[in-house]
Design a protein around this nucleic acid. Sequence first.
DNA 1: CTCTCCCT
Length: 767
Amino acid sequence: GGGHRSRSRSRSRDRRRSRSRGRQGFPVRVKKEDESSDGKPSKVKVEDRAPRSWDPSKPLLPKLAERQDSDWAQLPVLEYRKTIVDMVKNNQVIVLTGETGSGKTTQIPQYLAAECGWTGRIGVTQPRRVAAVSVARRVAEEVDCECGEDVGYAIRFEDVTSPLTAIKYLTDGIMLRECLGDRFMKDYSVVMLDEAHERSLHTDVLFALMKEVCKNRPEFRLLVCSATLNTTKFSDYFFNCPMIDIPGRTFPVEIQHIDCQRYVDKVMELVDHLHAEQPPQHHILVFLTGEDEINRACQGIHRRIIQRQADGEEVCAMRICPLHASLPVEFYQRVFDEPPEGTRKLVVATNIAETSITVPGIKFVIDCGAVKQKIFNAESGMESLNIVPVSKPAAKQRSGRAGRTGPGVCIRLYSEKKMMKEFPEETMAEILRTNLSSTILILKGMEIDDPVNFDYMDPPDADKIVSGLRMLYLLGAIDADGKMTKVGRDMALFPLEPSLSRMLLASILHKCADEMVTVVAMLAVDGANVFYRPTMKEEQLVATAARQRFYDPEGDYAGLLRLYKEWEEAGGMRRGLAWCKTNYVHSRAMCRAFDVREQLIGIMNRYEMPVMQATRQSLVGRAIAESLFMNAARRGGKDTYETLSEGRMVSIYPGSLICPFGKDDWAELVVCLEMVWTSTGQMRFVCTANAKWIMDLLPKINTVDIRRLCGDQIKIKKKGADVGSADQRAEEAAQKEIKKGDKDVSDAKSRFLERKRMREEKLAQMK
DNA sequence: CTCTCCCT
């Protein structure tokens, strides 16, 4: 799929969800029938139409049953229509493999709706929001209905479905949340898990949940769709189900391998060469691993073209488009637009162009063969970003991008031998690489208590599961025996990481939820990255100065709060764009934070959790410190810290907004949201803590009994935390804080505030 | 002295 991220059209979805709770104490989504599905008045009023009388003897969408063969979209999959329908009728699960362009995602649900009588919907999951929306719109057009009637979609913030909806496209994350309300998915007769080969975290969890549904509902049907390769693995996992392969419709791509050491340099050389030799309508797409490489390549290529022009050569114009997720939205459009006659388009992208964004008119693909991958290390509790070889299917996917509109060429910057030997056969499933606390909490929410013996297609390492359980225990979501607590149940209500849910709940007790919900919303949209870094060196200085206005010794939360408030005062959702530009802040991130904030407040209102404004800001800091005490660290050297739990040396993430009160006057004790391993351990989202706030909580770190947490399900080789030391380190930190004296700190604080006031006055005078 | 990419 391709296209743009669409802005959400409605932000009040939560209001119309039912207040009732399901059996397990979780919300059941019930939409009132008198309301349109997308928040706007729909052209066909739902109440004017007879409610669907689900009749197993009649097709799900009778109007499709009248279609002639020539009425169907002429795609490769059409040839298999009867075969597929028969297979689904006769088998509970089938695995479908099909390359891009086969039409399986759009056509198969229609085939089933035309011929099969069922009592529930057909649900089709997608790993990406844009794909769910664009596919649903296209299918609605083919079915000749308004999107939200016979065909609809559901993504976060946008539920464009009605009780009539027979074919529903949804993100895998939404499907997982729906499972939390009803484990047996009784709303659906058929579920199709699309893009299964991508092995996204949510799809992997759904694999196991859908197997359970199959065992409990004989009439239920499951389709698992994957690009080719490794399909027997899917079939083996799904009860040895039958498989079918559908050919795609793409153009041939010629593959060339060039072995090289420094691929960024090679990219510059190759693009320069192609640009001189090839006609300008042959556009080029380059895959690199990150922003740095992309900027370097773009600048190098630009220099070479200038050089050729200076040498008096006749070279055509080139439009150079860097493409990665942290670019502001305006840049994306340049990627889709066809440049003027005689101008070549060059797109230098991360793997965002592998699946999420389809660039039209590409003749040449240059693939560096590497990708940045986030890996969670359970032993250190840190995650890191590593550059690793792409998988063989991913390399194929990249080369395929050259054959969308005509025959193409893919130049791979690695030898064939290296590919065969070093590239993995499949992309490592996300569930094997990620922090599992969130997943385990969802499972516990479904009364699946044993995350160790869960039916994973690829079981994660035991130490990762243990690490997730330990985190949940320290957050108070589960008790010492691994049973979900009241706090855990409340945490699972929020579409957030467990640590963020915990902060929100803590803020309710400290009567500062109005502030915390802003902080949490900012963090939920990649809070560390709301600032935009320009490419040009001089501009970077301006950007840094703009960011410094939000520095605050209390911690990142205080800076983020000021940032959000300023944005709102500057016009927020509707008129905040100019403010974002001058402050080098991502407008996209801010708007998303607004949406998340609204959604969270909606949930809190529904469960009658008081959203109060803090009488003083430090209450927010206290709620954060109490939630994240397991990530506390005391000051070690000048600006280094030592974790209380394990005595590990860490530093503050350079993009943090925390700052010392005075020169060198760094906080003695801090907590952070997460630790990231780069060249050193780094704390992200840092908050100043008072030793008194967390003293009583710290001993809990040493009470973790892994065997009990797992319900004796696991053989543990890992030793517990260094017993006793956490308390001792905390005690020392507290002593140091006391010795330093409250007076010194408060003096420094008032000096800081005075300086800040002066700066702001000066700024106000300038305006 | 830092930022692959998705998603509730």
